[in-house]
Each structure stands twice: as structure tokens, then as C-alpha cells.
Write a protein that binds this DNA or RNA. Structure first.
Lengths: 145, 145
DNA sequence: ATCCTAATCAAGACTTTGTCTAAGTCAATA
DNA sequence: TATTGACTTAGACAAAGTCTTGATTAGGAT
């Protein structure tokens, strides 16, 4: 039983109707190589397996997966949103300011704790995202030469 | 001498040609009430003073102010980018997950320090942004009732 | 196995946000 | 005040995402 069938089980358990389109989108996201795809990239990979899948369906399915908490959505650059299947383990992101590549990173301590009570202005805190930025080794070699 | 004329002085010192359009955009950003406007909102407020100002000029000017380090650009929701005139004092953002309103917050300690050396994967770290999310008091009253 | 129906999907128009181009205008210097 | 290259305008264009409408289908009921 791999992570994939786990995911489909969980979704079915929540009353998800399991269509070919949804299966393919879930497969693309959960396909081993842990990358951070845009909706368009997900659509491209899904269409390789199911050519008639529409963009709208990919957007809908990604949105549902995010609502269900199975996938994280974030935007590293203000352009296309990225979808991160690694929603089960808390992590932050490290983005290359040269090429835009993204890595998951794990930080020390609880980032929520960094916000003093006096600063939270009566908000009911729900979470925090950290985005580290820097030049990746490849870009350092090219640009920083 | 207010912050505004400071800003215009600095820009002139850097060889900026001081046009009516740029002056108005700087005025809008630096107009006391510290908010986080979108480019479109900046354009709307600028056009109230200088009706013929074009969208392209507002985008260009905002981009220049960001490059010069006078204004911060960030995206809280993956939609329109926001422009933050408070670039001189390090801070993070707290975003209401109900209404989307944004506050500046100041955290304890240096957020860069949270990333262990072993996690930085050879990247030359440049910075980090934190986005806290939660329900603001107004939205708690309405939705959380 | 077949039927039924609400849930889902496809196609493409539409919206939002931002960039680019070509031609006209103007701030700063001489 | 004449010049000139930087700046601006208007609108075309592009990317990312949403919405509408009618067709299709998964899964339960028969």
C-alpha cells in the first residue's frame, strides 16, 4: 500500500466521487519525485495520461485537495500558485532567487512562537509560512562567478 | 521635513528624474495611513490627483521603488501583489484569513536563525519572509459567532 | 445488469493582474 | 530656450485563474 492508494482511500472515505480525472491529478501530485508543480504543470502531466482532461477540472480538483487538507498551496513568486503534496509534515520553503527552484526545509522550533502575544492584535492565529530566499549552488556558480 | 520629502530627496539623489507621475505615486504610498495597497489601488488613488496617469507608469514606478529598496513587494494571497512603504524597519505580516486585511507585526529574534545550516543546502541565504494567518477580531465576531 | 440523478466534466468565454510596444512628451542640462 | 534621452501614454498582449452551460458519468437504487 503506497502513499497513492492511501490518498485515494482517504478521499473516498470523505465521500469523494472517484473519477478518472481526479485519480490522474492525484497520481501526478503523489508521484514520488517531490516537486512543487503549478496548476498548468499538473495539467500538462495529467493530460499525458488522460488527454481530454480540461484545465478547469485540474483547477477544481487542486482546489478540492487543498480544502481537504491533502495538498498545500503556496505562491513563491507572486506568479502561478504551487501545489505541494507534502501536507502531512510541517515544513517551510527555500526558494532560489536566481532560478526560482524550490526546496522543502525544516526549521528549528515552532515558528508560531516567534509572534509575541502583544503583536497578535486579537487575531486567532491559525498558522504561519516562512519563505527563505537565497541563491542555489548552481546559480551561485553561474552568476556569482 | 516629513518622510515624503525624505523619500523624494533620496530618489533625486539617485538620479531619479522627478516627474509629476512619480511624485504622485510616492505620495500615495507615503501618505500616513500605513496600508498595503495593490498596484491597482495605487493607480486609483494616484489618478484621483493626476487623472491621466497610466497603469503602465504606476507599475513601472512601483517596480523602480522596489528595486531601489524604498518599498517592499509581497503577495499575501497569490493574487495581486501588495506594496509596503515600511521598508526601513524589518517586520513580518499578519493576514486575516477572513477578510484578507494585513497588519505589520514584529517578531522576537532573527527568523533567519531558524534555518539550521544543515538545511540550507548550500544556498547563499538572502532573507526570509514570514506570513502569519488568523482571523481578525472583526471576522471572529462575524464568522466565529 | 440497468436505470437514475446529482455530481462531475469539457470547452471556451471571461476576468484579473501584469508586461510590452510604439509613438508622443517633458525634465534637466547646457 | 533648445536639445535629448528618459519618461509616459494607450492599448495590445500574455499569464493565471474563474465561471457558465450543456454533456457525461459514478455509484447507489431497482
Amino acid at each position: 500500500m503506497n502513499a497513492m492508494s492511501d490518498l485515494l482511500e482517504r478521499l473516498r472515505g470523505r465521500g469523494w466521487r472517484l473519477t478518472a480525472q481526479r485519480r490522474v491529478v492525484a497520481e501526478v501530485l503523489d508521484s514520488g519525485e517531490h516537486v512543487h508543480l503549478t496548476a498548468d504543470e499538473v495539467h500538462g502531466r495529467a493530460a499525458a495520461r488522460l488527454p481530454e482532461i480540461s484545465r478547469a477540472t485540474v483547477y477544481n480538483t487542486l482546489g478540492e485537495l487543498v480544502s481537504l487538507g491533502e495538498v498545500l498551496e503556496f505562491s513563491a513568486d507572486g506568479r502561478a500558485k504551487r501545489y505541494d503534496p507534502n501536507a502531512r509534515h510541517a515544513h517551510q520553503h527555500l526558494v532560489c532567487s536566481g532560478c526560482g527552484s524550490i526546496r522543502d526545509v525544516h526549521i528549528a522550533g515552532d515558528p508560531m512562537g516567534a509572534l509575541p502575544e502583544s503583536e497578535s492584535a486579537g487575531y486567532a492565529l491559525e498558522g504561519v509560512e516562512m519563505t527563505f530566499r537565497g541563491l542555489c549552488p548552481d546559480c551561485r556558480a553561474k552568476r556569482g562567478a
